[in-house]
Computed example of a mutant assay.
Amino acid sequence: MRRSGSSRPSPVLFAALGAVVISVLVVATWQVWSNDNALSERGQQASGRVVKVTTGKNSRVHVEFRTADGRQVRSTIGQGDEAPGPRAKAGDLVAIIYDPLHPEDDLRDARAPENHKVASLLLGATVLAVVAIPAATWAGIRARRRERSATPADQH
């Protein structure tokens, strides 16, 4: 015979962790979407020198450039915002689009088309979490109630 509730996490704990996950997804979605919109609305073009290229799962192109007001900035070209074709190498000059209010945020390669893939994926994950976590929490609460109301003869 199994003890009641021993195989399921507490619905309250599940809901609390779900709220944290949803909060993180909302903040990440907002930041990526805001940065994409800033580049579209007020982005300025500059020439940047590639200082480092990281490869692997989180491959990125790191660029140094000078803003229109003369500040020297080092930032990264956003995931998927690189131009099609061969990847830039350290020392290459690339045309970039940056947000003059936050030049240290992710950049976009000026030759690349606008890309909202990451923002769209995050938005989809956020919507899924907003629907799935409360539904799973409610299912857990209902299962607990059924277990508690079951008679001892039903728990064989």
Rank of each mutant, 00 (worst) to 15 (best):
P11F: 03
R42Q: 07
D92S: 05
V26M: 13
V63N: 02
I77V: 14
A16C: 13
L17K: 09
V61N: 13
S40H: 14
G70T: 10
V63Q: 02
G78E: 05
K117C: 00
E64Q: 10
D81M: 13
A119Y: 04
T126K: 12
N115F: 01
G85E: 00
R142N: 08
V20G: 03
A68K: 01
R3S: 06
E41W: 09
D154N: 11
I133N: 12
V94F: 11
F14H: 10
T29W: 09
G18Q: 14
G78Q: 07
E82T: 11
V21N: 00
L128T: 12
D81V: 01
T54D: 06
T29Y: 08
E82C: 03
E82L: 09
V50M: 02
L17V: 10
V24E: 00
R144C: 02
R2E: 05
H62N: 13
L101R: 15
V61Y: 04
G43M: 00
R144M: 01
G56N: 00
D106R: 15
L122Y: 02
R145C: 02
H116P: 00
I77E: 01
S6I: 10
D99Y: 06
H116I: 00
V94M: 05
V32S: 09
V130G: 11
A112W: 02
W33Y: 14
S149K: 13
K52L: 08
V130T: 13
V20M: 00
V50R: 02
A38V: 04
S7V: 09
A119M: 08
E41T: 13
T137E: 08
H62A: 05
T137A: 05
V127A: 06
A110Q: 09
L101N: 14
Q79G: 04
T54L: 07
A143V: 07
L93C: 02
G5V: 09
E41M: 11
F14P: 08
D36P: 11
T137C: 11
V32K: 15
D81C: 07
V12Q: 03
G5D: 03
A129M: 01
